[in-house]
Amino acid sequence: MIIGERKSLEEIRKMIGGYKRVLVVGCGTCVTVCLAGGEKEVATLSSALRMAAKKDGDGLEISEATIERQCDIEFIEELREKVEQVDAALSMGCGAGVQTIAETFSEIPVYPALNTRFIGRTEEQGVWTERCAACGDCILHVTGGICPIARCSKSLLNGPCGGSKDGKCEINPDVACAWQLIYDRLKALDQLDKLEEIVPVKDWSVSRDGGPRKLIREDVRL
């Protein structure tokens, strides 16, 4: 899932400073699950924003809405009536959500309340870690199911760098060295021979290097 994290109140207030009526929009999917932008966070942030404005004597009216998914226009359309009543929207969705709202309602500015951090998983309640870099050409089958693109600090493809020490990455002793993990896992699977094959230079054109990505499936297109 996509992991997000709320920006500071100060930063958010700067963005929406000057607007009198603001709609705070939550998303019921990834960011609800990672506790950053669901209905509760929307209510909490709204309350804080109202108070901060009241305290400074700024008139600020806030309306709230949380929709199923901010990355689908059909759900965003549900916001139309509310959007017509406001001067700006504040999205608590991921970057895709913010932009989908902006594309749907060109008449008002849309601001991000979250920093979209990464694609990852919940390690335990309150702890999330990165797992995938959306590189566009998955190699998990050769690396024991552990992604060196997302989890090796240098995204190395053919084994660790010289900084791997006691299983930890040289950038920070709290970070596991992905290549150590890969080695351990392949060993446990009795697949160490996979490491002998050289992984060729990766085709980064399907990743960000190829510019903004687009995916079309004719079979499901209407």
């Binding site: 500071s8 109140l9 100060e10 804080a48 108070m51 901060a52 305290k55």
Partner: peptide, 8 residues
């Protein structure tokens, strides 16, 4: 932390 940011 929120209160601090709000100024309470």
């Amino acid at each position: 932390r929120f209160l601090e940011e709000i100024g309470i």
